[in-house]
C-alpha cells in the first residue's frame, strides 16, 4: 500500500458516498445512468469473487464488501425507491457494445485460463469502459447537476491515482500488471474531456454545461 493507492481508494469511496448523498437528498436519480451503475455491480461481483478464496488484508476485505454492497444499494435506490425519477429514454447506450468486446479481450488477455482469472480480467476491462453510458448521457443532455460532476470527478480521480501507484510499485517492488495498467490508462483517458470542463467551469463556480 502506498499513498497513491490509498488516496485512490478514498476517492472511490468518496464518489460512492457523493452519489448516494445526491440521490437521497434530492430524492432523485435524474442525470445518473442506470446502465453504468449496473455495470459497476457486474465489475465488483466478477472481480471480488476471490473474497471466498483468498485473504489479503482486513482493509481489502472490508473495501470489497463495501463496493459490492453499496453498488447494489445504488441499483435498489434507482430501480425501486426513486424509480419514477429514473428516465431510461435518455440512457440509451448499447451495453452489448461494451460487454461483448470485454469478454473477447478477457479471453485473449488474462493471467490464466481458469474462471477466477478470466472473470478478473473481464472485470478490469469492463471497469475501464463502464462510465461510457454515463458520459454518453451527459453528452446528450449537455449539462449536469454540480453534485453529479463531483461524483464523476471523484470516480475519475480514483483510477487516475492508481497510475502513480503502478509507477511506484514498479520501482519499489518490481511489480507490473500490464492488464490493469493498460485498462487503467484507457479508463483515465475517457475522463479527460470531462476533467477539462470540470476544472475550467465547475471549480470556477459555473454550471457544468457542454458547448452546443
Amino acid at each position: 500500500m502506498n499513498i497513491f493507492r490509498f488516496f485512490g481508494d478514498l476517492s472511490h469511496l468518496a464518489s460512492i458516498f457523493i452519489l448516494i448523498h445526491k440521490i437521497t437528498t434530492t430524492r432523485s436519480c435524474r442525470g445518473i445512468s442506470f446502465k453504468t451503475q449496473a455495470l459497476y455491480v457486474t465489475v465488483f461481483v466478477t472481480r471480488y469473487l476471490d473474497l471466498f478464496t483468498s485473504y489479503v488484508s482486513l482493509y481489502n476485505t472490508v473495501m470489497k464488501i463495501f463496493f459490492i454492497a453499496s453498488s447494489c444499494y445504488i441499483l435498489y435506490l434507482m430501480r425501486v425507491r426513486y424509480r419514477p425519477t429514473n428516465d431510461p429514454s435518455i440512457d440509451t447506450f448499447r451495453l452489448e457494445y461494451l460487454v461483448g468486446p470485454c469478454v473477447v479481450l478477457a479471453l485473449i488477455f488474462n493471467y490464466g485460463y481458469n474462471p477466477t482469472e478470466l472473470l478478473w480480467s473481464f472485470s478490469i476491462f469492463l471497469e475501464s469502459v463502464a462510465i461510457l453510458p454515463q458520459l454518453f448521457m451527459l453528452q446528450r443532455t449537455g449539462e449536469a447537476e454540480t453534485i453529479t460532476t463531483h461524483y464523476l470527478a471523484a470516480l475519475g480521480a480514483y483510477r487516475a491515482l492508481y497510475i502513480p501507484n503502478w509507477i511506484y510499485r514498479y520501482f519499489s517492488e518490481g511489480y507490473v500488471d500490464p492488464i490493469s495498467v493498460t485498462a487503467g490508462l484507457v479508463q483515465t483517458g475517457l475522463y479527460l474531456d470531462f476533467f477539462y470542463v470540470y476544472f475550467t467551469k465547475v471549480l470556477q463556480g459555473q454550471k457544468f454545461e457542454l458547448p452546443a
Binding site: 481489502n60 473495501m63 493471467y111 481458469n114 490493469s180
Partner: peptide, 10 residues
C-alpha cells in the same frame, strides 16, 4: 484454481 498474480489491489 490458484491465482497466478497477487490480487491485492481493488
Amino acid at each position: 484454481t490458484e491465482s497466478t498474480t497477487p490480487k491485492d489491489e481493488l
